[in-house]
């Protein structure tokens, strides 16, 4: 089986912010990489800009990275823990 190339994924979650590295994925080509990145890293959050870059194209120096993650998509109400009616007296949820 052929190994699919590795792509690094960068996402800009809102206008005014810059693209942030969120992770990597495998895909056979750029079009599929972009679509997979959308599915995995943005869960259909709108207004998001995604870059996918072949990992092989990246030239690195010594790592000194800061990382950020962004919240799951806003349109899926049931993704947010606060959506569930859990009685107040239940702790640790």
């Amino acid at each position: 089986m052929n190994a699919e190339p590795l792509w690094e994924v960068f996402v800009r979650s809102r206008r005014g912010l810059s693209h942030i590295h969120v992770g990597s994925l495998h895909a056979p080509d750029a079009e599929m990489a972009l679509r997979n990145a959308r599915d995995v890293y943005t869960r259909r959050q709108e207004g998001v800009s995604i870059w996918v870059v072949p990992a092989a194209s990246i030239t690195a120096s010594s790592p000194d990275e800061k990382d950020s993650f962004f919240d799951p998509a806003g349109d899926k109400v049931y993704r947010h823990p606060t959506f569930y009616d859990i009685p107040d007296e239940v702790r640790h949820l």
Partner: peptide
Amino acid sequence: ARAMVRICKEESFHQRQGYE
């Protein structure tokens, strides 16, 4: 560690939905 941060955020929804 970074993957775990992302996963933990998503997992809290899973636990709450199961309990509910």
